[in-house]
């Protein structure tokens, strides 16, 4: 059995400090970051489609409802959906230009967000519009999809420009 060694017992001292803003009360900064292992699961074919230059939505196998952003089950009747190809040109349903944003996207400001609509498709698709001055964008404008050459497997693998 090992001997106890209380006389020399100590937590190791470390040469790491913290950023301290204030003493009363004590306000300090620490860093918080994680690597997250995410699966697109049943939505994976959508992202794989973007890498092939295809834009995929969903069509209900039972009631025929159509969805511009894919979902594996119908929100109207609950039946399974099948994949459908969306046209690569559509119209702007609404838009905005963001001059501010969350930290992750601050460097990209200003950027323009649009919802794309297609005739006969029951819902819209959120994307970025590129290459247009904010004041020249308008509801009803025809837009066409472009795809990144190097896929990131994110919804921004597709974006839109004026048709």
């Amino acid at each position: 059995m090992a001997d106890n060694n209380i006389r020399n017992a100590k937590l190791e001292e470390v040469e790491q400090g913290c950023v301290l803003y204030n003493l009363d009360p004590i306000i300090m900064k620490y860093h918080y970051e994680v690597d997250y292992i995410h699966s697109y699961a049943q939505d994976s074919p959508f992202f794989a489609g973007l890498a092939k230059g295809e834009l995929k939505g969903s069509r209900c196998t039972k009631c025929g409802s159509t969805f511009a952003t894919p979902r594996s089950h119908c929100m109207t009747c609950g039946a399974p959906t099948e994949w459908m190809d969306l046209p690569l040109t559509g119209k702007i349903h609404t838009y905005t230009t963001c001059y501010f944003g969350g930290q992750e996207f601050l460097d990209e400001t200003p950027f323009t967000l649009i919802l794309v609509e297609w005739p006969g498709v029951d819902t819209f698709f959120l994307s970025r519009l590129v290459g247009m001055a904010p004041e020249d964008v308008h509801i009803g404008m025809e837009v066409k999809a472009r795809f990144r050459r190097l896929s990131q497997f994110k919804p921004t693998d597709v974006y839109f420009v004026k048709a």
Binding site: C98, Q103, R128, P155
Partner: peptide
């Protein structure tokens, strides 16, 4: 703003430029 935007769909909305003011603006 980023934390709040995590209350939008993190597959299809957040990565496009997650920002609630942007959603309300649209």
């Amino acid at each position: 703003n980023e934390f709040i935007a995590l209350a939008s769909d993190t597959n299809f909305d957040y990565p496009v430029g997650g920002f609630y003011t942007g959603y309300y603006a649209m």
